[in-house]
């Protein structure tokens, strides 16, 4: 089986002379939860957008399951952007129908079960929900797909700690063991326990790619501590 994600000399410039990513090489195996960590402006979101075909690389390439980003990769990648992409006039059930219409791997029963557990009614209009609740709805939709690669950009940033626990739990219980989760966040200590691997990005390049066990054994530090050390201002 091919690695789920491969980047070869991946570079992106927005045309202002700065490189958001420069010559990034990366290969991710299946069946792990990977933390994509780095300070603001380190290139996390650019990398994520490139994987999701929302940007075109300036140089190099990215491949998902050996294929360039496109229709086929979008079928197997489930993406949670940091933005709220919901149409405000829709009801929660409209969104469920939309996902069901377009994604063959969407599991409606799973979505309804999670929404019920979070106390979100199917007839609620998205406009009337709080920002945190909308983020929960979005995460539920994304995690209700049987994807091979989940990309979660700041999935827990705007929700309260109780919901955060539920969401992390949801992530852990809902992904099958061959799937890979790539998760970007600032709240390292909150998610450290669920990560198998961490990637540190700085100035558009990978400065660390190690398993969490390696970090703990060799450096004798938590990921959070290591992050603070590496990226000390």
């Amino acid at each position: 089986m091919k690695p789920i994600l491969e980047c070869y000399g991946l570079s992106k410039s927005y045309g202002n002379g700065r490189w958001a990513l420069s010559n990034l090489n990366l290969s991710l195996e299946r069946g792990q939860i990977v933390g994509l960590l780095g300070p603001n402006g380190s290139g996390k979101t650019t990398l994520i957008k490139l994987i999701n075909d929302l940007l075109v690389p300036t140089e190099g390439s990215v491949q998902i399951d050996g294929i360039l980003p496109g229709v086929e990769t979008k079928k197997i990648v489930s993406y949670l952007p940091e933005r709220t992409y919901l149409t405000p006039s829709w009801k929660v059930r409209d969104l469920i129908m939309y996902f069901e219409d377009f994604y063959d791997n969407f599991r409606r029963d799973r979505a309804e079960e999670m929404l019920e557990a979070l106390g979100i009614g199917l007839h609620a209009r998205l406009r009337t929900l709080s920002k945190g609740t909308r983020e929960k709805v979005q995460l539920v939709m994304v995690m209700s797909r049987d994807a091979e690669l989940y990309i979660l950009d700041e999935p827990i940033g705007g929700v309260d700690p109780a919901a955060r626990d539920y969401i992390l739990n949801t992530i852990l219980t809902n992904y099958n063991e061959n799937a890979t989760i790539l998760l970007s966040t600032h709240l390292i200590s909150d998610i450290e326990n669920i990560l198998d691997r961490v990637i540190f990005l700085q100035n558009g390049q990978v400065v660390l790619n190690a398993s969490v066990d390696e970090v703990r054994m060799e450096q004798k530090k938590s990921v959070d501590m290591l992050f603070r050390e590496v990226f000390r201002c």
């Binding site: 929302l54 979008k74 952007p81 919901l86």
Partner: peptide, 13 residues
């Protein structure tokens, strides 16, 4: 707009 994040990641060309 933000909705584009969903539209452009649907499995369609």
């Amino acid at each position: 707009s933000d909705e584009g994040y969903l539209t452009h990641t649907l499995p369609v060309s």
